[in-house]
Design a protein around this nucleic acid. Structure first.
Lengths: 335, 335
DNA sequence: GCAGCGAGTGCAAACGATTGTAACCGCTCG
DNA sequence: CGAGCGGTTACAATCGTTTGCACTCGCTGC
């Protein structure tokens, strides 16, 4: 700062009171103990001088920094923009600041530690692995924490996640409605709840229908692994007429593999994605996908964290209801 | 924190020295004044106890928080993910933390103030408007600041931006090479340097060629405004055979308007975008676009800020060279 | 044998806030 | 008339670090 900060003692001097009095006058909770007249004088001087309390100094004394840490596994993935936006909007409304850090599940440790050093009041993790030692430790000894988008099986940590069972059911129901019975699933990595969860959901729904279980796992949530796994799937059972991708990029990989096998997406083989990232309506053919309200998810996460910081006991897990965005990849008629 | 923090005085007590000595032993710059033997003892105890200095307390004394603020205009825009990733990577490497805040050009004020309250050592703004009073004030009285992606004309503030003149030239040159002479431009909002800059660049390049100037402004950098403006452009001059969009979304808007006019993108009218956001290669037809290395841009910005914090005088502006990603929207042969 | 020196440490004052406790004032009441 | 009391305010400690200054101690050089 080039201009000198206006400090509490400046205000106190201007109002001709002791700093402690000024402090109490300024803080709503202690205001009642100081004479209304004095309060008025202090507030006026504070206003006039443009006093803004130093959250750092305050944090040193009170052990609350009014900041929360957010850990994102991959900032370049368009999924996380809306999540961060939702989190941020919720937090600044409550006067909190957001410390952001990027770290994959395997390297969260240092990120968590550095945020803890900064004495964040709470933590929001989008980077949890299915079996996550870091989360396990946080649950025992760490600031209040909320998981978002992914959850952990080895620790009881509140999470805001999409209802993958419902989402997959929406996709499969829609495909069945379109007449498909031989439906395959290209699953995501099993280390993430989003990978294994959707796979289990798919298996459950298909069992309900009594249809065969055709599943291949992709090495990652990206296009190429999706293409490779789809190729394996098609090779294993050429009679497949529909593919449920574990996320949109895997679905786009399926596009490539389907084409490579000489068939047309939408006409010969239907494909669905998951997440409904932006521009999915503009690919060729536009892709049917399970839509998750990620901004809302972020907002919910910050809301939950705020209530935990307010001392409330947190509910274990909140499921967000997805919807299905139907497009040409499963309904070529609309082409 | 549930477990009590290990403090400097814990370390000092364990090493049987005064806290001041411990402090000096721990800080590389003052380490030379304390006896090597003592240094060793202090370091060992610090290590053994798992001591981590409290950046808050330190910041209170030193006035340096080792944190920087980043202001992003729209977290949901996929453009900014890579920028943030680049910034973050650069900063954590130097031991800095990132405080993120979202604010449009018109509402930066509160965000800047709140970051200043937190005593950030530096600021990175992706939200600068072309004429920006907030930036103007920052330049006079504020922490070291770097602009990224957009710059400001009313203040002399270091910026890392793409070379729009070169980018537009690449696009136009390519179109001319493909035989086009009647080339239109759908410009972005004039309040942003990216809008007006690309427009000016287009005009300059076209003047060089001696071709007519066909420009319409879109109200925003989104699809619908792009479509509307393109429609106006096509109505004004139906003989246009190529359109340069000010960004990718505007280009996608042009797709819609071109189709609405009964023509085919790529065959009847070529279209280029700008930024080369993800999945642009998957739209139909895949779009030719000027590629900007946004992650690198973010990395450069943090690098520049770090050097400024190190006391070096900052160069005024760094231009990043874009490249052209040629796809089917200008080269239908590859369809 | 003592002033002076330099190396190494300790003391204590910051930084800007919050907060327990003491002190003061003018009253009332016993 | 003095103890006690409610209402206000001031004092001072505290949070965890850094840092200017003073101090000690063992030497050297005169």
């Amino acid at each position: 700062m080039i201009v000198d900060r206006v400090t509490l003692s400046d205000v106190a001097a201007a109002a001709e009171v002791h700093v402690s009095t000024a402090s109490r006058a300024l803080n709503a909770s202690t205001r009642s103990v100081v004479k209304p007249e004095t309060v008025k004088r202090v507030l006026e001087e504070a206003e006039r001088l443009g006093y803004r309390p130093d959250p750092i100094a305050r944090g040193l004394r009170t052990n609350r920094t009014h900041s929360v840490g957010v850990i994102i596994p991959d900032l370049e993935n368009p999924l996380f923009g809306p999540i961060i936006a939702g989190i941020e909007a919720g937090l600044v409304a409550d006067g909190y600041s957001v410390l952001i850090s990027s770290a994959t599940s395997n390297h969260q440790d240092e990120a968590v530690r550095s945020l803890a050093d900064r004495n964040v009041d709470g933590l929001i993790l989008a980077s949890a692995a299915l079996a996550d030692p870091v989360v396990e430790r946080l649950v025992k000894t760490g600031p209040p924490t909320v998981l978002v988008n992914r959850f952990t099986e080895n620790a009881d940590m509140p999470a805001i996640i999409g209802d993958d069972l419902l989402g997959i059911r929406l996709a499969v129901d829609h495909l069945v409605e379109m007449g498909h019975t031989r439906i395959g699933h290209v699953a995501g990595p099993e280390q993430m709840s989003t990978g294994i969860g959707r796979r289990r959901a798919f298996e459950a729904v298909m069992r309900d229908y009594g249809y065969p279980l055709l599943v291949e796992g992709a090495r990652g949530f990206q296009i190429e692994p999706g293409a490779t796994a789809t190729a394996r799937l098609l090779e294993r059972d050429p009679s497949i007429t529909a593919i449920v991708g574990a996320n949109d990029l895997i679905g786009l990989g399926s596009y490539l593999a389907v084409r490579a096998s000489g068939r047309r997406v939408g006409h010969d083989i239907a494909v669905t994605g998951y997440n409904d990232v932006t521009m999915l309506d503009l690919v060729d053919p536009s892709m049917t996908s399970v839509h998750v309200a990620y901004r809302h998810m972020g907002a919910k996460a910050s809301e939950l964290l705020m209530s935990m910081l307010g001392g409330e006991e947190a509910p274990r897990t909140t499921l967000l209801e997805p919807t299905l965005a139907v497009r040409s990849s499963t309904k070529p008629s609309s082409d």
